[in-house]
Simulated scan of single mutants.
Amino acid sequence: MTPAALTRLPNWRSRLEAVMDDIRLRPFEWHTHDCGRGLAARVVMAVTGVDIGAQYDGEYHDAASAARLIRSHGFASLGDLVASLLPAVHPSQAQLGDIAAIRMDGPIGHALGVVNGERILVLMDIGYGTVDLLDAEVCFKVG
């Protein structure tokens, strides 16, 4: 699959702020509020109006089933899967609202976050925290 060149909606900033406010208030839960479907896909939807995660609805419920899903689609990590959906950019080229992939130990290989200047917003047990943009292995352009 070729990464999609998406277009940001005219009101993307206010939509991004609204979705991040909602994300901040919710506890982590696989598939409904994890870094893929609950953060990255929701941000892309808010910024562009395109649901890049819809094809994976109901396909996983924990880290192990997420890893199986990633591998079953021919990808080595969550970052590789996202690279099939969005164009990759070097972290130094990332802009507000872009998606960042941070290498991590574990079955899915990456955690996803949202670029917020020199920081990346990442999901925590409840709400979100931040890590340095330099922690990103790669970022993905959202519109």
Rank of each mutant, 00 (worst) to 15 (best):
Ala63Asn: 01
Ser65Lys: 05
Ala67His: 05
Ala67Arg: 06
Ala67Tyr: 02
Leu69Pro: 02
Arg71Phe: 01
Ser72Phe: 12
Ser72Asp: 08
His73Pro: 10
His73Met: 11
Phe75Met: 04
Phe75Gln: 05
Ala76His: 12
Ala76Phe: 06
Ser77Val: 07
Ser77Gln: 07
Ser77Arg: 09
Leu78Trp: 09
Leu81Ser: 03
Leu81Gly: 03
Ser84Phe: 09
Ser84Val: 08
Leu85Trp: 01
Leu85Lys: 02
Leu85Gly: 06
Leu86Ser: 01
Ala88Gln: 12
Ala88Phe: 04
Val89Lys: 02
Val89Ser: 00
Gln93Arg: 14
Gln93Thr: 02
Gln93Ile: 00
Gln93Ala: 06
Ala94Gln: 12
Gln95Gly: 15
Gln95Tyr: 01
Leu96Lys: 10
Gly97Val: 11
Asp98Asn: 08
Ala100Val: 05
Ala100Pro: 09
Ile102Arg: 03
Ile102Glu: 05
Arg103Cys: 04
Arg103Gln: 14
Met104Ile: 15
Asp105Trp: 04
Gly106Trp: 08
Gly106Val: 02
Pro107Ile: 00
Pro107Lys: 05
Pro107Tyr: 02
Ile108Asp: 06
Ile108Pro: 10
Ile108Glu: 02
His110Asn: 15
His110Pro: 12
Ala111Gly: 11
Leu112Gly: 05
Val114Ala: 13
Val115Phe: 14
Asn116Asp: 15
Asn116Trp: 15
Gly117Thr: 10
Glu118His: 10
Arg119Gln: 13
Arg119Phe: 09
Ile120Thr: 01
Leu121Ile: 13
Val122Ile: 15
Leu123Ile: 12
Met124Asp: 10
Met124Ala: 15
Gly127Gln: 03
Gly127Glu: 09
Tyr128Met: 11
Tyr128Leu: 08
Gly129Ala: 14
Gly129Cys: 07
Gly129Pro: 13
Gly129Phe: 14
Thr130Met: 09
Thr130Ala: 08
Asp132Thr: 12
Asp132Val: 11
Leu134Lys: 12
Leu134Arg: 15
Leu134His: 14
Asp135Glu: 13
Asp135His: 10
Ala136Cys: 06
